[in-house]
């Protein structure tokens, strides 16, 4: 690009850098605080005020998280859920969003409204459970994947992006006699990479974090997902150490619940954060043109 910045432009850019830098500090702090908390001994974990470092780091909290062999099993379950769920959900969302972007299509408005309605109204937990039961998908991965496979929110975002694509490419393809499906596959999808990446991130994070459906629909312990197991570990550590006789623990001084919370956030967040850099590359400028030319 040509060097064109005036003095005022340069000042503006510097301001942008400062703004972003400050924001980085402010948004990184809570994460750092939690990380330090997760490796702090009890005495420091319970100190009020800012946490910047700890004098006696300990991995005790992580040990308590990883000693359960349920962790590996549930990590695998979560991974299957995320991969399978995201693939199915993203594919279906993209497939459904394309026809919806054709506003001249008869019934388009009606269908859009039917879909939008589900974003605002939902039937509730108990009928949802009965449905899963009647479909005989209780205790299977489908109970976690199918109900949320197509959501109104993702559909509308994707449809709007597709609507904004330059129509010229599609029209020339139509003239060449390409079918809608071919256009969708060969032209629309490659051009929609940024929005596909965004929606994929949303879907993957939702599948990674949701615990409530897994807890209600998965009756076998061996099918629990990671958030369900982590939540359980957290709650166990949160319990009052004073409990009726018979459930008294051993004499080892435990870490505080706060420390475990920190460790659990780290364990559950870091894998999903690793996904982001792969998605980011679709957010760079001109990615769409590149896709067209390539």
């Amino acid at each position: 690009m040509i060097k064109t910045d005036t003095k005022r432009d340069t000042a503006f850019v510097v301001c942008c850098y400062i703004f972003v830098a400050l924001l980085m500090v402010v948004t990184f702090y809570p994460f750092w605080d939690l990380f330090i908390l997760s490796i702090s001994p009890r005495s420091e974990a319970l100190k009020p005020g800012l946490r910047l470092f700890t004098s006696a780091p300990t991995l005790e909290a992580y040990r308590s998280v990883f000693e359960s062999n349920e962790i590996i099993r549930s990590f695998w379950n979560s991974l299957v859920r995320v991969v399978l769920g995201t693939a199915l959900s993203l594919g279906l969302t993209a497939l459904t969003a394309y026809p919806l972007s054709k506003r001249d299509m008869p019934f388009n408005k009606g269908v859009t409204f039917i879909i939008l309605f589900t974003m605002i109204f939902s039937g509730g937990m108990i009928p949802g459970y009965l449905l899963i039961k009647d479909l005989h998908i209780m205790n299977t991965i489908w109970a976690l994947i199918l109900p949320s496979a197509v959501t109104a929110y993702n559909l509308i975002i994707m449809r709007n992006f597709i609507e904004g694509l330059p129509p010229s490419l599609e029209e020339s393809a139509r003239i060449d006699g390409a079918s809608y499906f071919t256009i969708w596959y060969k032209i629309v999808l490659p051009l929609s990479k940024p929005v596909l990446a965004t929606v994929m991130l949303w879907i993957a994070v939702a599948h990674w974090n949701n615990y409530f459906d897994a807890m209600i629909y998965m009756h076998d312990r061996s099918k629990f997902t990671l958030p369900v197991v982590l939540r359980r570990i957290l709650l166990e550590n949160e319990l009052d150490k004073y409990l009726p006789a018979g459930v008294v623990d051993t004499g080892t001084a435990p870490q505080t619940p706060e420390t475990t919370k920190g460790a659990i956030v780290m364990v559950s967040t870091i894998p999903i954060i690793c996904v982001y850099p792969f998605i980011q590359k679709y957010f760079t400028k001109g990615v769409m043109l590149g896709a067209v030319k390539g």
Binding site: T96, P99, K102, M105, I114, T118, S122, G123, A149, S179
Partner: peptide, 29 residues
């Protein structure tokens, strides 16, 4: 509707899931 036949077909699976899983339990309201 005819020219859009293929598009309706593409709409079908997603719409079916929404009808089953979102409208199915709606009677709970």
């Amino acid at each position: 509707m005819k020219p859009y036949a293929a598009l309706y077909l593409m709409l079908l699976p997603g719409l079916a899931l929404i009808l089953i899983f979102c409208y199915g339990p709606m009677y709970g309201l």
